[in-house]
Computed example of a mutant assay.
Amino acid sequence: MKSAAADPYGALQKLQGGERSSLTDAVAAALREAIVTLALEPGMMIDKQAICERMGVSRFPVSAALARLATAGLVEVLPQRGTRVKPIVIHDIRQHLFIRSALEVEAVRGLASTCSEATLAALAANLEKQREAVTGGLRHEFHLLDLAFHEILLDAIDLPRVKEIVATSRGALDRARQLLGSPERQIQTLAEHVRIFEAIAARDAEAAARAMHGHLDQVVAELQRFAGERPGLFEA
């Protein structure tokens, strides 16, 4: 995780001139990326002037962008103090993981009896790339492959609305996932994915459901441990 002690605004790029609305969009996108990747850490007070200077914009698009991010639950306004990056709320994480577990556990339970050879081949290829990413220490690539593994499973059940709901909950977990990107956690995630794949390949619906349930439960357990180490990043 990137430390806010280094320049927390270093990843923000200077913008070219444009319409006020497009500048707001660009500032909001850049700040969201910085928050999700933890360049701007949970609990950190936001320096609007530093953002203006770094991105070469006036205060209006910065304020408008922060208002959008407040609506999205990524920042919050503290009366008489200013705006800060909202701490990660453990209760919210549990709710989104509950949603994911309810849907993805049932997805793999059903998929175990209907999975095509093409889907199994796609999962196997994805897992091989995950192994390569773990071995090579490619954190970002592993993150993308992790997402792709779950996408393959959800595409295979062909229920677009379910996939949409899962995607929304997964997006709300972006910051938390960044905290769990250690090499050790990646090795564990790969092992959990392998168990899910092997259960589906064996056409064992209950084993697949248990493997997915255990995989998502581990996220909560890891976050609880991390919250004990870095309590300033979290709210109960």
Rank of each mutant, 00 (worst) to 15 (best):
L147A: 15
M45P: 07
A202N: 10
F142Y: 09
F197R: 10
D174Q: 12
A133N: 06
R100D: 04
H143C: 11
S101Q: 14
R175Y: 07
L74M: 09
V62Q: 02
V134E: 04
P79V: 10
A107N: 02
V27G: 04
R139A: 14
K86A: 10
K163Q: 08
I88C: 09
A221E: 05
E106V: 11
Q16M: 15
G110C: 04
S3V: 09
V36T: 11
R68M: 05
A207K: 04
F226M: 12
I200Q: 02
T83K: 05
A67M: 15
L145W: 07
T83G: 01
A34S: 14
T37Q: 05
S169K: 02
I157F: 12
A176E: 10
S63V: 13
E128N: 06
Q130F: 00
L233F: 08
L159H: 15
G43V: 03
V219F: 07
M1Q: 04
T83L: 02
I187C: 13
L233V: 02
L190P: 02
M212G: 00
L147F: 12
G10P: 07
I51E: 03
L147T: 14
D7E: 00
V77G: 08
V166P: 06
A172V: 06
V57S: 06
H215K: 00
I51K: 05
F60N: 14
G228N: 09
R109Q: 15
L144N: 13
N126T: 09
R177I: 07
E222F: 10
I93C: 05
V166C: 03
V194A: 02
Q95W: 10
A29K: 15
V36C: 08
T114I: 11
